[in-house]
Design a binder for these strands. Structure first.
Length: 607
DNA sequence: GTAGGGTTAG
C-alpha cells in the first residue's frame, strides 16, 4: 500500500477512516499521474486533504502529504501556511512562507492574508511589515482580505493604532470586516472609548451592521464600565434582530455581570433560550468576583446540565476557592483539573498557585510552581505574593533573583510583590536595593503603589522619618494609600505628631474614610488626649457610616466558620478562647508585650 | 483546491 511510505502503520491506523480512505485515493492519484483520467500538475485532492488534516489538528500528516507532492503550486503552499496558522504553529507557517518566496512561487492575496494572520499571532511586526511590502510589490493593495489582515496585524503588533488607521483610511470601500477589525483593535488594547468612537462612525456612515460589530461594541462598553451605553446597545441589538446570536448574547451577559449587577445578569441568563460553555463561564466568572460561594453552586449546576468544564471554567472556580480560602474544595477542583489533563494550561496553573497560597498551603503552591514546564511573569508574581503573605520574605527575594536570571523582564506588579514581601519580613535594605534597581536598571517609573510599598517598607522597620522624607521627595502628589502607609507606621511606632499629619492629609483627600478617624482617635487616646478623642468619635458618629469590622473565617471539617471581634459564635466559643489563652501564654513566654493602645476602638467597634 | 472580524480566565 502506497500510504505506508507516508506514515507508520500505527499512525496510519490512528487517522479517522474517512480521511484514511481519501488519503489513499489522493496519494494514488498523485503517484500515478500518468492515469489518463487525472490532470497533470499539482493535485487538487492533496491540497484539499492538507486543509482537511489541518482542520482536525493533524498538521504533521498534512506536512508529510505536502512534502510528498510531486508539484506544489501557490494554492498548495497557501493551504500549508494556513494549516500551520490554524494549528498555532506560527513559526512553521512563517518558515513555509519564506521558503515559498525563496522557491520563486509568487504569493497571491490568499497567501498574504494567511501569512499576516501568523505575524499577528506572533506579534512579529517586522515580519508583518515585510508582508506589507510584498503586498505592494505584487500589486495587492486592492485586496480587501489583505487590507483587513494588515489592519489586524498592525492593530495587534504596534504601540499605537496609527498604522492600522492608516491602512483603514486607504481602503476605498470598507466592508463590515474592516470596521469590526478596527473596533476590535481599539477595544482589545483596552481603549473602549476608541472602539466606541469607530462604532459611532460606522453608524453615521450607515455601514452594514452584523452580529460581529455588535458583540465587539458591547465589549467596548464593558471595558469602559458604561452600563448606560451597554443597555443602549442591547436595545439596538434587539432592534436589529441579533438578540438570538450566541456570541452577542454572551457579550451582553458579560456586560451585565461587570457593569450591572448579579441580579440583572442572572435574569438575563435565565432569559437566554440558548446557552453554551462560554455563557456558563461568563456567569461563573461574574459570580466569582462578587459572590464566590454562589459561583461554585452555578458550577455544579453547569455540570449537572451536561456541560464539560474547560480551562476558563476552572480558572474562575479555582479563584472562587481562593477567595473563600476553602482548601478542601480547592484540592478537589485541582483533582478535577488534573483528571481532565488541563493542568498544563499556564493561566490555570497560575490560579492554582494563588489558590493554595490563599488557602494557607504555601508548600502546595511551590510544588505546582516547580512542576510547571513554562512560566510567565504572572506565575512568578503569584508565587512571590504567596511567599510575602506567608511571611517568607527571603524565599520571595530568592525567587525574584531567580526570575531575573531566567531572563524575565520585571514589571511594576512584580516589584510590588517583592517590595511587599521584604516589608513584611523586615528585609529593608534588600527592598531599597530593589527599588533603586527598578528605576536604574529597568527604567520603571514608580507610581503611587510602589511609593506606598517603599513607605511601608521603611515605616514597618521603624525608619519612619526616612519614609516621610521619601514622601516629601515624590515627583507627584502622594495619594491616600501612601499617607496611609505612613499613618500605619506612626501608629505602630508611636509617633503621634507625624501620625496626625498623615491622617490630616488622608482626610483632605478622602474626607469619608472612617478608618482614618479611627486611627486618629486611637493616636489621641494613646497620648491621653481624651478631649480630642471624644471629638473624633463625635465626628465619626455624625458621618453616619461605620467602619466595617474585619471578618475572619476558617474551614474545619468541610464547614466554614466566620467570626468578628467579640463574636459569641455559639457553643464553640469556649474552645476558641481556651486556645487563645494558650497562645497569649506562649507569646508572653516568648517575651511579647501586648499593645493595649488599640483596645479602645476594638471594644467600641464590637458593640 | 488556498484567506477575514466577535463572546469567557489571569
Amino acid at each position: 500500500m502506497s500510504t505506508k511510505r507516508l506514515l507508520s502503520t500505527a499512525d496510519f491506523h490512528a487517522i479517522p477512516p474517512i480521511i484514511r480512505n481519501s488519503l489513499q485515493w489522493a496519494h494514488n492519484s498523485t503517484a500515478q499521474s500518468n492515469t489518463p483520467f487525472l490532470p497533470k500538475g499539482p493535485s487538487v485532492l492533496a491540497t484539499n486533504l492538507i486543509k482537511s488534516y489541518s482542520e482536525r489538528g493533524l498538521i504533521k500528516e498534512a506536512r508529510i502529504l505536502f512534502d510528498e507532492m510531486p508539484e506544489r503550486d501557490v494554492v498548495a503552499w497557501t493551504a500549508m501556511i494556513a494549516g500551520y496558522t490554524s494549528c498555532n504553529h506560527y513559526s512553521h507557517a512563517w518558515a513555509m512562507f519564506c521558503q515559498m518566496v525563496r522557491n520563486g512561487v509568487e504569493p497571491n492575496a490568499f497567501t498574504l492574508s494567511s501569512a499576516l494572520k501568523g505575524c499577528k499571532s506572533m506579534k512579529a511586526l517586522s515580519y508583518g511589515a515585510l508582508v506589507h511590502g510584498l503586498a505592494i510589490k505584487h500589486g495587492m493593495k486592492e485586496s480587501m482580505y489583505v487590507n483587513n489582515a494588515l489592519m489586524d496585524m498592525y492593530a495587534t503588533c504596534c504601540v499605537s493604532m496609527d498604522e492600522a488607521c492608516m491602512v483603514f483610511q486607504e481602503i476605498d470601500v470598507k466592508n463590515a470586516v474592516s470596521w469590526t477589525t478596527l473596533i476590535t483593535g481599539y477595544t482589545h488594547r483596552g481603549d473602549g472609548y476608541g472602539g466606541l468612537r469607530v462604532f459611532r462612525q460606522m453608524l453615521l456612515e450607515e455601514a452594514e451592521l452584523n452580529p460581529f460589530s455588535f458583540s465587539i461594541a458591547v465589549r467596548a462598553c464593558t471595558s469602559i464600565g458604561s452600563y448606560a451605553l451597554g443597555k443602549l446597545i442591547h436595545s439596538a441589538v434587539i432592534t436589529h434582530g441579533f438578540d438570538t446570536n450566541l456570541p452577542v448574547m454572551n457579550s451582553i451577559l458579560d456586560m451585565y455581570c461587570r457593569c450591572g449587577g448579579l441580579s440583572e445578569a442572572n435574569q438575563y441568563f435565565h432569559e437566554m433560550n440558548e446557552k453554551d460553555l462560554i455563557t456558563w463561564n461568563t456567569l461563573i466568572t461574574g459570580y466569582e468576583r462578587l459572590d464566590s460561594t454562589e459561583s461554585l453552586h452555578i458550577f455544579s449546576q453547569m455540570e449537572s446540565e451536561g456541560f464539560s468544564p474547560n480551562c476558563f471554567t476552572f480558572t474562575s472556580v479555582t479563584a472562587a476557592c481562593a477567595n473563600l480560602a476553602v482548601l478542601n474544595c480547592g484540592q478537589q477542583v485541582h483533582g478535577g483539573i488534573v483528571r481532565r489533563g488541563l493542568d498544563g494550561n499556564l493561566a490555570l496553573a497560575n490560579a492554582i498557585i494563588d489558590m493554595y497560597a490563599k488557602c494557607g498551603s504555601i508548600s502546595d503552591s511551590r510544588k505546582v510552581f516547580s512542576e510547571m514546564t513554562c512560566r510567565d511573569l504572572v506565575s512568578w508574581t503569584t508565587m512571590m505574593i504567596g511567599y510575602g503573605a506567608h511571611g517568607y520574605g527571603k524565599e520571595a527575594v530568592e525567587l525574584f533573583d531567580e526570575m531575573i536570571r531566567s531572563g524575565i523582564r520585571p514589571d511594576k506588579i512584580v516589584y510590588m510583590a517583592v517590595l511587599s514581601a521584604c516589608s513584611h519580613a523586615g528585609l529593608v535594605d534588600e527592598g531599597l536595593r530593589y527599588f533603586k534597581s527598578m528605576v536604574g536598571d529597568y527604567n520603571i517609573t514608580p507610581n503611587q503603589e510602589i511609593y506606598g510599598c517603599v513607605v511601608d517598607l521603611l515605616g514597618r522597620a521603624g525608619r519612619v522619618e526616612e519614609a516621610y522624607e521619601l514622601i516629601e521627595s515624590m515627583p507627584f502628589k502622594p495619594d491616600e494609600s501612601v499617607w496611609g502607609a505612613l499613618l500605619g507606621a506612626c501608629k505602630a511606632h508611636k509617633l503621634p505628631n507625624l501620625g496626625k499629619l498623615a491622617a490630616r492629609r488622608i482626610l483632605d483627600l478622602r474626607p469619608n474614610m472612617v478608618g482614618t478617624y479611627v486611627m486618629l482617635s486611637n493616636i489621641y487616646a494613646a497620648e491621653g488626649k481624651w478631649g480630642e478623642y471624644a471629638n473624633m468619635r463625635k465626628l465619626m458618629r455624625g458621618m453616619g457610616s461605620k467602619k466595617e469590622a474585619g471578618r475572619s473565617w476558617i474551614e474545619v471539617r468541610d464547614q466554614v466558620y466566620s467570626f468578628v471581634v467579640g463574636d459569641k459564635m455559639g457553643s464553640h466559643i469556649k474552645w476558641v478562647y481556651g486556645v487563645l489563652d494558650l497562645l497569649i501564654w506562649h507569646m508572653k513566654e516568648a517575651g511579647y508585650v501586648p499593645d493595649l493602645d488599640c483596645l479602645i476602638h476594638d471594644q467600641e467597634d464590637a458593640t
